[in-house]
Design a protein around this nucleic acid. Structure first.
Lengths: 344, 344
DNA sequence: CTGAAAGCGCTTACAG
DNA sequence: CTGAAAGCGCTTACAG
């Protein structure tokens, strides 16, 4: 293979390779003429410096590792796109690895990033277990978590303020006149589910509505789980007049079941999602939801990592706020239902 | 920083670092006992070999570069997820870079991959121009393109058979009884648009239907373009009874406009997409479309690259077939319209 | 301003 | 079976 090195250039420029190295770095230690000549020759020879050789001596690879459960998740893809943007703007390349939420794979990914000597690590929307976190922190490189489900004590992270956002979403339904509001959660036990549920309860409490446990059902964060959950809710007597869903994917399933049961959204039942995936604008009706600034969260996480990489000991957690996006899946309940629910 | 090297291990094991290297590679050249002892020590010391040092001597980085326009595109994200799967299974790490279809950025990405000394490159669904391709091929590493819009002569690629798939999609509409079938394309001039249009025309011809130029309008591959195009089609007298869309995103826009105009899908107008994005199952009605085996295409592209990396000079182009997925957005036209169109 | 030297962490012929 | 040596392509003190 023909890859040209600093030595090749030195040979044709009749200087030492040290001088070539300096010239290529615009070092003031080399005369203008020689420097320019060397640069011209390098250009002509199609020289590209070897990042691997450089990394070996500088002990910085200018790479970061991004771990995701799966890049096929639209939420994650948006976040990663934000990460990649600022990484590239600062000369960093990103290694992408899917963990598939598989513990074995997670360990393998961490080892792989370790061997690659990445300068830092970003973990998106993962449910990193304790074991995984230990492996990660053994690497002794800065780690930033995005919407992590098990925040440890020593890690930096970017997090959506789930409680406030969920309270806002639920309050929107209450303001419309709903009194019989359900919550379809994610699988039980995950932090963001717990937080979103907490926001839902806070909204009920603040409005003096009694919490009804039967109105809380768990899905799986995907349409399938949303469908199953919605079926259970619609079997209730009376069924809720509004449903706040853990995320848009869940809402997608809920929406489908509502339609299958012949219910009109929002006339018969209101639906709110969370995330504001692209798809939320294109459902029928378009979905009222909480927007997470996904790309922005990716950008901020990378910016935080950059600070850590520069030795600035910045804040532990960056909180971002969700934004209620009112579209067409929410409306006042029908008259006869609005006040059917007893106030506490 | 504390990263332990082969030398550190050598020191505590009281052997040379060459022996350590051999032991860690399970070389038969080192006695079982020493090898095991060394491995134990390495383990205890938390040793992780440096891929960068190894790369420097082996002249293989075991990395590949993946260029995408944007990872936020759901089609691309699925493909990348397939790529990543097989890459990781074979010990390769993947560098991900978004080009944003920006020529400047494309060049920068290529340079960056060059400097990183990636072993191979995968380009997904890009509209790589000639300039870009030149830079790419200068690197002298194997390149595999996926659904590229400007296939060159010397590159390997994985391509969907657009013509056959589009003909199938259109024939499906014809079989339902439609005679007045529109095509909403992508921006004019792109290869896959040209091919899908060709498939559409072939279907018409084979069925003896006359091609009507006014039934062909161009969008932009996104919902917005689909909306504009659909508005133009619905302004026709008579409007088409069915529309074949360049892709699902376009169909999303078309669907929305149909609804805004008070048309029922599929009763008043049938719609077919292309891609079978996740979202296609969750529109209302669920979208009939052509499924591209996205993940599989990513896997095959990476497998092809692997072969090239192993020096096997494999086939230039792998063709994959689309699959018609009939859902609920297509149905026979209303009686009075079915035969309104003159046969040629 | 320029070059020779050392070294980053490995692999792998070459001797023994 | 083991070690000393060379070298991958750079960067950067150290001399001059």
């Amino acid at each position: 293979m023909s890859t040209v090195s600093i030595k090749d250039i030195a040979r044709v420029a009749k200087v030492s390779h040290s001088t070539v190295s300096r010239a290529l770095h615009n070092s003031p230690l080399v005369s203008r003429e020689t420097a320019e000549r060397i640069r011209r020759i390098a250009e002509e020879m199609g020289y590209r410096p070897s990042a691997v050789a450089r990394s070996l001596v500088t002990r910085k690879t200018k790479t970061i590792g991004v771990v995701v459960t799966t890049i096929a998740d639209p939420f994650i893809a948006e976040v990663v796109s934000g990460i990649e943007e600022v990484a590239n703007d600062h000369g960093y390349s990103v290694f992408l690895a899917n963990s598939n939420a598989d513990p074995d794979r997670e360990i393998k990914v961490v080892h792989s990033f370790h061997e690659r000597r990445v300068d830092g690590i970003l973990v998106t929307a993962s449910r990193v277990g304790a074991l995984y976190m230990n492996h990660l922190s053994e690497m002794k490189v800065p780690i930033v978590l995005i919407n992590n489900q098990h925040p440890g004590e020593f890690v930096h992270s970017v997090m959506i303020d789930n409680v406030t956002a969920s309270r806002t979403a639920t309050e929107h339904l209450i303001q419309l006149g709903h009194r019989h509001i359900a919550y379809i959660g994610d699988q039980f036990g995950y932090q963001s589910d717990t937080e979103r549920f907490a926001g839902y309860r806070q909204a009920l409490e603040r409005s003096g509505l009694t919490f009804q446990p039967e109105l809380v059902v768990h899905g799986d964060g995907k349409p399938e789980g949303g469908m199953r959950a919605m079926e259970r809710l619609l079997a209730l007597a009376p069924p809720p007049t509004a449903v706040f869903c853990y995320n848009d994917m869940t809402a997608l399933g809920a929406l489908r079941v509502a339609r299958m049961r012949g219910l009109r959204v929002p006339e018969d039942i209101s639906l709110v999602g969370f995330d504001d995936l692209f798809i939320a604008s294109y459902t029928e009706p378009p979905l009222t939801t909480i927007r997470q600034p996904k790309r922005q969260m990716g950008r901020q996480a990378m910016a935080l990592l950059l600070q850590l990489l520069n030795g600035e000991n910045s804040q532990q957690t960056i909180w971002v706020q969700g934004e209620l996006i009112i579209r067409a899946s929410t409306a006042p309940p029908r008259k006869e239902e609005a006040y059917a629910h007893p106030r506490s």
